[in-house]
Every structure is written in structure tokens, then in C-alpha cells.
Write a protein that binds this DNA or RNA. Structure first.
Lengths: 201, 201, 201, 201
DNA sequence: GATGAATGAGCATTCATTCAT
DNA sequence: AATGAATGAATGCTCATTCAT
């Protein structure tokens, strides 16, 4: 399921020790830089922090999106993995809400990611597919469960919701829970018109 | 001292004829350029189209946001003005929905505006205030009416909603009404838990 | 006939004093650099020597070939102008030979020019036309006169000869008159088979 | 007669089998790459095609010119060998002309070779000697025969001619026989002033 | 006031060569 | 011997902003 950093689909190919060191340094550096300056931070900033030549970065991550995907892979996996866990622990609606907040948390710390996704720059072309592939099934399951439980309508499109929250979830000043309120509102929208009425016992 | 285009609050000081001509040309040019290439299009593109020197632009619009605000002023005013009109023509909930879609339409055609607002670049610092000042009261009224009519809850924060839709409203491919669906969902969220139950008679 | 450096065909537009200074500095610097390092020397080398920003160079000479043409314009003009002069002073064959040597002298000091002409790089696309336009008519006249005098054949193609000598005329070590010998040989080739026999009185 | 590819003068030392395989692969790959992209094609292109590490190339061919010479050795030998053959089949002048065209054909397919020879880059220093050593005697013989037959003058310098045609023979667009015409012209130059007059019986 | 020339830091990217593995 | 990862200087080019004219 996992392989060399730049060839997400091929057969695993063990990296030489020095290469592995470089890749690790780059991922760590990029993670920091992305957090501080956004995903479109200058390449140099990353290589400098990783103490690595520019060519090394391009060797392992020929496309900018390759680096982004690699940096976020762990986080994406982690976030996606939370879906089933929540589904097992909470009742469907609660699980859904919690996961959306979790997902928003993931997005919010990725400054510039949303912009990059819509920039039209071909260097980012592969990213939407990457995210869709990893997140859509998870959300689809959560929506299904909630719908089957009668808690929400059954016509919600998971990709629609992911895009919406992906755009909504902007980094905020401390103490501002705008994103959370908006998620709550969206979920209420899903509940509205579901089989069971909202209020009355 | 004057309120040349960049100082909206001061005492009016009529521009010299040539200055006025420059400002007009810049506004027209910027409007076109923003529409074609987004609000972060290169400055030269604008000055070239306006047939004006770069210095002239900086004289009248020292900050990028000054130009953006000036360019959008008419559209902002127009969009804001639609609020009362809709309120007079439709029942509260319908008016609210329609205006939010109108507002989304405004935002969607401003490529890069949302990104600019969150870029952290001080050149855009004054924009959020500008939009808040013009749009918030309008939406507040619409929400109030709808709430008083019992169509939606009464605790909705207009600025929250404006920000949400401002982020949500991304330019889409033809035929994709993602934004409209999401607005509808948000409004349903507002309706959920309002005095009257959604479905049953 | 002559205008702004980058717009060889338009109406003359007097340059501002500072612009003229920059252009002059650039031309002087480029001339030196081309002589030392060839026409594909790094841009930076030229701007540094001219004490001018990189943008200034690109403003006046958007294409590399624009700079080359401008740098060589004087020399091209001078070389082309020598044709009629020689034609007036010497008998046709002598004039022809002398001009070809003069032309070879022009080419020989332009290191890399010939290579640039054949590099396929679009940045040099306009150069062949530039040279053809300036040199071909001059050589055509010289060939015509010599042919009419019966000194050479009448089927020589001027552009063919220009290309040949353009390639032939490579910078040589001091004291090596390879180029001159080859020109002489080519001219002998032209004489061969002309109306009058070579040797016998 | 032959030794390690890079040390033409030392005592023969048979290569290990794997080393020989590498060298062969490199020569084959380089031949293809030179034909497609010229002799100054990126090194990586060659090593990639040879499926060999970069270090391996540098081990066997420390200088770029070593590789070029090795790659062209067969072709050079073949071209040189044609001289005597032609001399045996045709009368001297015809043989001379045909061989010059053959030589031009060799040069013309080596994109960038002529430029490399004059680049001043020390990596190419040894090439002129290599070519001189192989081609000069062949041409000297052809010139001698033609001169002794009275078809051309006797003062032609073979190295001069080789250089001239080496420069002249530039890759051309299809259907353009510029090079052939120029060779013909040069040969006519050689004929001019020879013992026998060109035309009159 | 207007102009637009000049600036020059900044960026992505390539590639010959070295050297740890 | 072979590998190929790493290096990092070098290069062309852009563009916001300033300031001489």
C-alpha cells in the first residue's frame, strides 16, 4: 500500500539508507514549513531546513503535489482511520459530526492547501484525486449509517461535503470556533427533513 | 484632507480632471483584469490596460486592497442593496436564501479574493472590515426577519455566515451547482430547530 | 531606419535620458561580454558589467536575439556599407574577395553566433532573417558585378556563400589565416568555369 | 592496439566481463543519444539509456571527449577506410569529391560536434587531435593523387580542408544540398589554376 | 500629477560531478 | 566495479515598488 515517496502506486522499493535519510529530512522539514508558511512556500525554505540540496528534493518529489501528498499521507491516513473508530464508538450522527470536525482540523492546519487545489497550477493536479480517494469512502460510510438510522437525509453527497468543509476550514484566530459552528450548521441541515422531527420527543 | 479614492472617510476634495480620468481608467481596467485573472493579477497588467503609469496607480491606491475595494464598491453596494428589495418581495426565508445566493454569486466571480483575505499579506488587511461593514447589516436584517417569522433559529451570527459562504463560493465548472446546494444545506441548518417543525403539518 | 532598440520596425520613439543611458551601458557591456564569452554568455554577466538590473535588460531586449542584433547593428551596418565602397575602388573580383574577408572578419569575432543560429532555440529565431536582410543584397551586387565582368560564374547564390563563410569563419589562433585561405579557395571555385580561363594570357 | 577505452596509449589490459558490458552499453546508448540530441546532450540521458550508473560512465570516460571519440571510432574508421576504396574505383578528382562528401555526411549527423570542437571547453581538447590523426592522412593521399594527375593544384592543405568542411557541414533541412554545393565549389577552387585549364579543349 | 524606467531580490529548475554505499 | 543519491552553483525570468524625469 505504501512505497517510495514519489511512486505512490508501484511496488515497494526499499530506499538506500542515505536516500531514506534525505526523504525523512525533507518530509519533516516540509511539514514544518507547510505549517508555518503554507504549502506554496518557496522550495529553498524546505531544502534549507532539511539541510539537503535542491536536486535531492526534485529527485524524490518531482512534482510539488508529490511532496504535499507525502507530507500529508500520514495525517490523511490517520484522519481517514478515525472514521470507522468513531462509527464504532458513537451513534451515527455523533460519529459523523465528530469526524467532520476532525477532518476540518486536518484541513485548517494546511495553509494554502485549499487555494492550491483551486489554483489551476498543473503542479497540483493530482491532489484532488488523492484526497478524494482517501476521504470520500470514509465520509460516505458515515453518511450512510446516519441516513439508515434516520438521523439525516439520504441524499447527501460526500464529495460535496468534503469540498465544502475543505473550503470552510480556514485557519482561525485562537478561540474562534467559526468552523465548528459552521459544521454544526451543515449537519443540522442534513438533519432537517430527515425521517424524525428535530425537537419534540 | 481629501478623499481621493483611497481615503473613503475624509472630507471630499474634488479631484483634478486628469486625476479623475486616471482613477476611472484604473477602476475600469482593474475590474476587467480581476475578472479575467483574479485579484492577485500582476499590477502591470492593470496599468497597461488603463494606459497609465505604475506610479499613478500607487498614488491613488497605495494598498492593493484599496484598489480592490474601490473596484468592487459598486458591486458591493449593488449586492447589499438587493437585500431590502428581496425582503420586500419574498417571505423571509425565501428572501434570505435568495440573497445568500446573490452574495455567493458576487464572491464566486472574484477569483482569488477569498485567498487574498486569508493570505496574511498586510496589503489586504483592510478588506475584511470593508466587506463586514457593507454586508453584515444586510444579512443581519434578513436573518432577523426570518427568525421573527419563526422560519429559522434566532441565534445565527451574520458574520459567521458571510465568512462561510465567502469561503464556500468558489468558482465552479459549468453546470456544477455545488455552491447552491451548500447554501441550501446551510439554510436548512438554520431552519432546523426553529419554532416550527420542518415536515409534519 | 533606426529606432528603439527592441522595436526595429516601428516609428522612432525618443528614449528618456535614463533609458538611453541604460541601453547604451547594456550595448557596451554586451559587446564586451559577447567578445569574451560568446553570444550565449549568461545574462547576469552582462547586467553586472552594465551595472544595471536584470529587469532593465529584459525591458529593452525581451529576446536574446534583440540584444545581439542591437549590439551587432553598427558592425553589421559598417560591414555592409563596405561593399559598395570596395566595388568602387577595386575591380569586381578583387572587391568581392575583399568583402568576403571583411565579412569573415565580422563573423569571426562573434563567438557562438554561428552555433546560436543553428541552435534551434526560438530565442534566436529572428537572427537569420536579420543577417540575411542586411548582407545578402550587398553580396548579391558584388557577385553580379564580377559575373558581368566575366570573372566568375553567374550562378552563385549569395545566401549560400554567406552561410558557408558564416560557418567557416571561426575564431583562430593568432597567425593562422585558415579562413582567408578558404575564402580564397571558394572564390577560385567561383572563377573556375567562368568565361575567361584562369591561367594562360 | 587497443586498451581501456580511456587510455588509448597504454598496454592492453583486458576488461572484466562486467566492465566490458558497461562500456558496450554506454557506447550504444551514447551513439543513440548523440544522434538524437547532439554531443552535448545531458549525461543522465546516456546513463539512463545504458542502464548504468553515472559513476560508471565517469570511470570509463573521464572526459566527455573520450566518450565521443570512442563512440565515433567505428564511424571514423569506416569513413577513413572509404578513402582508399574510392581512390581505387574512381579517377582522382572524382574520388576526392566523393570522399569529401562522405566526410561531410559523417560530420553533418554529429549535431553540436563542430561547436564542441570550438567551445574552448577543456573537456573537448583531445578531439581535434583525434580527428586529425585519423582523417588527415586519408585526405592527404587523395589530394596527392589528384594533384599528380594534374586535376588540382598541389598546394592544398588537407587539414585546412578538413576543418573547413567540418565547419561547413551543418545539419540542413531536407532537400537543401547547401553542403554539397559548397564542397563542389571548394573542389572547383582546387581545380582552378591546376595544370589543365577547365574549359577549352 | 503623471510617467514608466530601473531595481534586484526571489524563485523554480537543471545538470555535471563527486562519493558514500 | 558499479551504483545512483546528493550536491549546489548556475541560470533565465518575473514583478512589486520606488523614484528620476
Amino acid at each position: 500500500m505504501d512505497d517510495g515517496p514519489s511512486s505512490p502506486g508501484r511496488h515497494r522499493q526499499p530506499l538506500r539508507a542515505d536516500a531514506q535519510r534525505s526523504v525523512d529530512a525533507l518530509l519533516a522539514a516540509a511539514a514544518q514549513v507547510f505549517a508555518e508558511s503554507g504549502v506554496d512556500a518557496p522550495v529553498r525554505q524546505i531544502t534549507a531546513r532539511a539541510d539537503v540540496g535542491a536536486g535531492t528534493l526534485y529527485r524524490h518529489f518531482p512534482q510539488r503535489s508529490d511532496l504535499i501528498a507525502a507530507v500529508f499521507r500520514r495525517e490523511v491516513d490517520a484522519c481517514a482511520a478515525v472514521g470507522p473508530t468513531l462509527a464504532a464508538q458513537y451513534e451515527p450522527l455523533e460519529a459523523l459530526t465528530r469526524w467532520l470536525e476532525r477532518f476540518a482540523g486536518f484541513v485548517a492546519t494546511k495553509r494554502g492547501l485549499s487555494a492550491a487545489l483551486h489554483s489551476g497550477d498543473p503542479a497540483y493536479d493530482s491532489l484532488p484525486g488523492y484526497f478524494q480517494q482517501h476521504f470520500e469512502p470514509v465520509l460516505a460510510d458515515l453518511l450512510d449509517s446516519a441516513a439508515r438510522a434516520g438521523a439525516i437525509r439520504s441524499d447527501a453527497d460526500p464529495w460535496d461535503l468534503l469540498r465544502a468543509i475543505g473550503n470552510l476550514a480556514v485557519p482561525l484566530e485562537d478561540g474562534d470556533d467559526h468552523t465548528q459552528r459552521m459544521i454544526s450548521l451543515l449537519v443540522d441541515g442534513l438533519r432537517y427533513g430527515a425521517g424524525s422531527a428535530p425537537r419534540q420527543a
